[in-house]
């Protein structure tokens, strides 16, 4: 396996990366932040689901979504559902996505996160809640831009040289 779980990464590192991502998601930058709002939790989730598909998938997606639900103070389970779908899909296409060049990975990530946003919007529509803001619809694009950064940070140095 090229980048498989041969070098098994610590569960603590995974948990820590999710916590940092959640902090970045709720960072109080105020209205300055504007329309650039990458979904860090989704990026980290995709990373782990792609690079260790034997261990991470829908389950970790559900957990990270629940974390976001608790931080959001909206209706519980809204993010959990989206992230479950995201984790499952990322897990399914992990083999293909992992061998893509980085720029193609970016496109794949954008599509995956777009699915997550659509699930979120669908839940809102079914619950007759106000529609999503434009910032949220732009999340796939802003996250896509941040994907290389996540890859560089989470991949150990010895492994990055292979790209």
């Amino acid at each position: 396996m090229l980048l498989g779980s041969s070098q098994s990464r610590s569960v603590w590192l995974v948990a820590f990366s999710f916590l940092v991502a959640a902090c970045l998601d709720i960072l109080p930058v105020g209205w300055l932040r504007g329309y650039f709002q990458p979904d860090w939790v989704a990026l980290v989730l995709i990373y782990w689901c792609i690079h260790d598909p034997d261990r991470y998938g829908a389950g970790i997606g559900w957990l990270s979504g629940l974390l976001m639900d608790l931080l959001d103070y909206g209706i519980l389970g809204k993010y959990a559902l989206g992230k479950t779908v995201l984790g499952f899909l990322a897990n399914k296409i992990s083999l293909r996505l992992r061998v893509y060049p980085l720029w193609q990975q970016c496109l794949g990530v954008a599509v995956l996160i777009f699915v997550d946003v659509i699930v979120h919007a669908l839940v809102r529509f079914l619950l007759e809640q106000p529609t999503l803001s434009i910032a949220r619809w732009l999340t796939p694009l802003s996250s896509m831009v941040m994907w290389p950064l996540v890859v560089v940070i989470l991949t150990p140095r010895a492994r990055t040289r292979r790209y």
Partner: peptide, 21 residues
């Protein structure tokens, strides 16, 4: 097995959403 687990998580999420809403 993976698919089944996915469906269970989706079901639980939908259940939670409906309960909370």
């Amino acid at each position: 097995g993976v698919n089944l687990r996915f469906l269970v998580y989706v079901f639980v999420s939908v259940l939670i959403i409906n309960m909370d809403a």
